[in-house]
């Protein structure tokens, strides 16, 4: 087994009295797609926020390729090679699709400017399925296209680890298949991805490994089929009464 690219050790986040993330440990290996799953409010987004530096940790450590990134500012972490999308899509409203993508290419892990950055944006426009929409204002886009722009922006810095927070949520059944295929193609490219997801089909077809959270704690981990048949996971998803 190769060395972990990303590892979380004893990661904890408290909001006042609430322990949103409780001493979580897990590792992500190069080229792996790891699913972070669990019921609503179980601490998945908070975990991503801790990895990307959107929030400071209360306790624990996060390492990227062996060096500590916990405690760094979000921009430093982005430069070290972590990029992300957000559960509620965040685009730059005053800019075009192309400019939104360039925004990801200039200051991050891999930095480009001018013609080089525009070239990369053009490549990504095609890569995520936005052909012909590069000059559109982001306000004119359909929902799935906004998600595509955000994904392209995250990819523009050629990140070591890509974090996707419910990238497939809110898509209709046809769009969902397109979306799953798109993430699948990233996986085939060898990208290392941590994705938070509720869609079971997506988890089954995309993830090599799953970490299951409930009320902030890790309650199971393993391959998708292992964790999805784990009685404790089923109980967490369905509630105690139905177990």
């Amino acid at each position: 087994m190769s060395e972990a690219v990303l590892s979380l050790r004893g990661v904890t986040k408290r909001f006042g009295g609430l322990i949103a993330v409780n001493t979580i440990d897990f590792q992500v290996r190069p080229g792996q797609v790891v699913g972070l799953i669990g019921p609503n409010g179980s601490g998945k987004s908070t975990t991503l926020n801790l990895i990307s530096g959107a929030l400071p940790l209360t306790e624990g450590e996060i390492h990227l390729r062996g060096s500590t990134i916990s405690g760094l500012r979000a921009d430093k972490i982005a430069r070290r090679g972590i990029s992300r999308t957000f559960q509620l899509v965040r685009l730059l409203p005053s800019m075009t699709v192309e400019q939104n993508i360039i925004a990801g290419a200039v200051f991050g892990h891999r930095r480009r400017w001018g013609a080089e950055a525009r070239q990369e944006a053009a490549r990504l426009v095609e890569r995520v399925g936005l052909v012909g929409k590069g000059n559109m204002a982001v306000g004119q886009l359909t929902y799935i296209d906004t998600k595509r722009v955000e994904l392209a922006r995250a990819l523009a810095s050629d990140p070591t680890v890509l974090l996707l927070d419910e990238w497939l949520a809110g898509l209709n059944p046809t769009e969902l298949q397109v979306g799953i295929d798109l993430i699948h193609s990233l996986r085939d490219e060898g990208r290392t991805i941590v994705l938070v997801e509720h869609v079971m089909d997506a988890i089954r077809s995309l993830c090599d490994y799953c970490v299951v959270m409930s009320s902030g704690a890790k309650i199971a981990e393993g391959t998708p089929s292992q964790v999805l048949s784990d009685p404790e996971v089923i109980r967490a998803y369905l509630g105690d009464d139905d177990a």
Partner: peptide
């Protein structure tokens, strides 16, 4: 300009 649009995105883009 990125900061003016969304400071969180700016920080997460490495700014």
């Amino acid at each position: 300009r990125i900061i003016g649009d969304d400071e969180t995105v700016a920080a997460h883009s490495g700014i």
